[in-house]
Computed example of a mutant assay.
Amino acid sequence: MFLLNILLAIAWSALTGQFSPGDLAFGFVLGYAILWSLRRQLRGERYFTKVPQVIYFVAYVAWQIILANLNVARTVLFTPKEQIRPGIVAIPLDIRTDAEITMLANLITLTPGTLSLDVADDRSCLYVHTIDVGDPEQFRREIKDGFERLVYEVFN
Rank of each mutant, 00 (worst) to 15 (best):
F28E: 03
I34L: 15
A59P: 01
N156F: 10
G17A: 10
L126I: 11
Y60I: 08
L70E: 05
D121A: 13
W36Y: 15
V54A: 14
V29F: 14
I66K: 12
N156H: 15
V58M: 13
L67D: 11
L115R: 01
Y127C: 03
A25Q: 09
S37H: 14
V119H: 02
P92C: 08
D23K: 11
Y60E: 13
G113Q: 04
V61F: 13
F2K: 09
T16C: 09
K50N: 12
D98M: 10
T79W: 09
F26C: 09
V151E: 03
G87Y: 03
V76G: 08
S124V: 09
E153W: 11
E100S: 12
Q83W: 13
I143M: 01
L4C: 10
Y152G: 08
R140C: 05
Y32R: 02
I143N: 00
A14D: 06
D135V: 09
V119N: 02
V128S: 00
S37I: 14
M103H: 02
Q83D: 15
T79M: 14
A33H: 01
V151Y: 00
A105P: 00
E100G: 11
V128F: 02
D135I: 12
A25R: 08
P112N: 03
V119T: 10
T75I: 15
V29E: 06
Y32P: 01
G87P: 01
R39K: 15
R85A: 12
L150P: 00
P86W: 09
L107W: 01
L150E: 09
I55Y: 02
R39Q: 14
V128D: 00
N106D: 10
Y47H: 11
R40N: 15
G22Q: 10
F2D: 03
S37L: 15
L110G: 07
L107Y: 02
N69S: 10
F155C: 07
A105I: 01
R39G: 04
G134K: 04
A33Q: 07
K50A: 13
P80N: 12
Y152H: 11
P80S: 11
S37A: 15
V54Q: 07
R96V: 11
R46V: 13
G17V: 06
V61K: 01
Q41D: 12
A9Q: 05
R123A: 06
T75K: 04
F48V: 06
R39V: 04
L4D: 09
N69K: 08
F19I: 05
F48R: 05
L104M: 10
G113L: 07
I65C: 12
R85W: 06
D121T: 10
F48W: 03
F139I: 04
V128K: 00
P136D: 04
L42G: 08
L77K: 02
L42V: 12
F48S: 03
R85H: 13
T97D: 12
I88S: 04
F28H: 04
Q138L: 15
I131W: 02
I65T: 11
D132I: 02
G31C: 08
T75L: 14
V76W: 09
Y56G: 11
K81C: 08
T75E: 07
R43T: 09
P136K: 05
L126K: 01
I84S: 03
W36I: 04
V76K: 10
L38P: 03
T114L: 06
L24D: 00
L115V: 13
G113A: 08
P112A: 04
I66A: 14
L117H: 02
